[in-house]
Design a protein around this nucleic acid. Structure first.
Lengths: 214, 214, 214, 214
DNA sequence: TATGAATGAGAATTCATTCAT
DNA sequence: GATGAATGAATTCTCATTCAT
């Protein structure tokens, strides 16, 4: 499992190692089934050391969440989307969407261990869902609405389909594709991600385009 | 939390109560965080009684899985999809898909507690993913391929997009919609499911249709 | 495992079956490790039925002990020894002892399952040792003393070795031989029990005889 | 209950205390009837601490077994027997045997709690019997055969009685004597162990000697 | 009388957390 | 700061015993 890069966040070396180890272990067994002992071994520190940096086991999880959500909120991450969506003035919507989808899939897959933990825990904790909403969904929707409006105004996207429906469709496709690639690599292999995204985008763009409708 | 209906499956009364309680508790806390003590209390039986029906705590989970997969595999459930997809000779593809999507959303939401448990655990257990694949994904793909071929032959669906891409799109939309309704009811309210599905289908059908393409 | 014969003791059929089953199960796993459930299955009765005949699990053990000790105390059993030891007026001591040893080995091996349970439990329970002492050891010693005196009086056995020493020697030999045959059949095989006893008796008789000493 | 001396074996202090406590508790109640809770209290540690040193309760038993067998296998223990049996060139067989028997009785009585546990459990577990055979019986038999051969060659012991018969006789006497002293101290008191062993040896030596036979 | 489902006290075991070194 | 041994509360699971049928 590839290591998550915490560089750029000002964290003590040991804490970083513990977080990395925790992400790996939580991601493999789930939060509850993971033991602090295993995290300690994985991090190469003593079990007691963990509790110097994190008051409780739950605090480690909280640390992971904070760092993951921070990553998403990071200027670069958001900026990238904003730039792709809003500043690609003359590009074809197909190209814009493809770039965005490709970018998000790569991002999500690079943090898959963290994402898996967060999604799982979000299933059971309202407050976590709240945090995800505030930090990711709300922002994504905000930006996407701008993009949508722009596209509708340009007559590229049909105006009778709200941005929520489209975003849900795009995100649904992304999530399923990632699930397929991460969890069913052996059964539902995707030889060429690029082509696969092309087709996905093709369907969506066609479905939301203005020009081809009666 | 609504009770799952086990009627029709020949299960002892007590086992039914334990399964129902386990579904509730697992669904609220996740498998590992749930305790057999809590399940027992929830089921109104002694803790020991649980272990007369299920050898281990994990066996309860297995029981839930089996019953859930059974529900999906049930003739009626499968038959319903098959009928909708394959026997609706003259219906518009839009109508067919809408019926199917509506039907699946209702089904999945009715078993949401079970589904939540299984999806969560599937994140961490290869064998469970295997079971889901064999019992649900494979069968769904099989039926959908027939439908797809028929529609392509009839010139309704474009032939350059494989059934996998379309099914993934439909399922992604369904999953996101359910997540939205079940987990973000307060934040992302959907006042009219019917209209929402209409829009979703509209985009998809337009995206996969043959007739409107150059 | 051969069944112990309780016929002759006036016991209800079911109780007999339970006792037989308990002997088998206790003898295979030890008292504490055996479960009433297994005993019930072995006896072909319901678990509840056991507790109609025996108040507690410990009571089953007590039942076994009582019957086993009763067997030893039974006139026939004692009488046999008495007859062999005391009424064989003219027989060679070698022949007498051999008959006795052979007889006891056969007896003990026939009730080996019961004996194993009793010996094991006697290791840990003073009261059981007390019962064994009163019912078996004391009586055996009593009879043996008579035999010893007779033999000493006849000038057959040396008078400087007390009957306790000799009895202990005989019993030690018997116990070791049985342990060997019952527990180490594969490793320390005794092809011909008869010859083996002959040798054992030969050593003992020679050791305790009067005639050959200076 | 006297404490077993583990000094000389390199074991952590706590593990030593747990083993000592376990020996006491197992020896008083038997393995199955003993509880880890009681062992913990006896050892003056928390129950959880036990499981830092021994993975399972059964592992404690294994630990006891290993240490007991180690004691027997210890060079000093074996060497002592070998020296007594084989290097006492000119000593009377009576003296040699007495020393050996006395030595073994003292050894066995010093580890009586451990021996009691092991013998009891060996009644029910083939693998344990196997371990006893390999570590004790086989070695004892080996050494004794050498001694026997030497004595036969010297014309001291009759050649028509195999070493197995003699060893069984000696061991039977030892076992019975120990049982008597350890389990029936009050009923079958032996005021003078020395004299008692003298008599036992006298009988055996007379029984196996060459010189006095016709 | 016989049954066997249900019980719940008690057992082994786990593991986050503490704390002396 | 770092360690890891020790803790003990909590958890899963067992099983003798009860009792309604």
């Amino acid at each position: 499992m590839e290591k998550i890069d915490f560089s750029g966040f000002d964290i003590p070396e040991k804490e970083k190692k513990i977080l990395e180890a925790a992400i790996n272990v939580f991601s493999e067994k789930g939060f509850s089934a993971a033991t602090t002992n295993e995290i300690a071994k994985n991090a190469g520190v003593a079990e007691g050391t963990i509790f110097r940096y994190f008051k409780t086991k739950k605090d480690i999880l909280r640390g992971i969440l904070i760092h993951t959500l921070n990553m998403f909120s990071e200027k670069i991450v958001i900026a990238n989307v904003e730039k792709l969506l809003l500043e690609s003035e003359d590009k074809d919507i197909r190209v814009i969407l493809k770039e965005i989808v490709y970018d998000r899939i790569k991002l999500l897959e690079s943090i898959f261990p963290m994402a898996r933990i967060i999604i799982t825990e979000a299933m059971y904790h309202e407050d976590l869902r709240e945090a995800i909403y505030k930090n990711i969904i709300e922002k994504a929707l905000e930006i996407f609405k701008l993009f949508h409006k722009k596209m509708v105004d340009k007559g590229v996207i049909r105006k009778d389909i709200g941005p929520e429906v489209i975003l849900r469709c795009v995100m649904g496709n992304i999530m399923m594709l990632i699930a397929q690639r991460m969890l069913y690599r052996d059964k539902l292999d995707i030889p060429d991600l690029d082509t696969e995204i092309d087709k996905m985008i093709d369907v969506i763009v066609l479905g939301i385009s203005e020009q081809r409708r009666e």
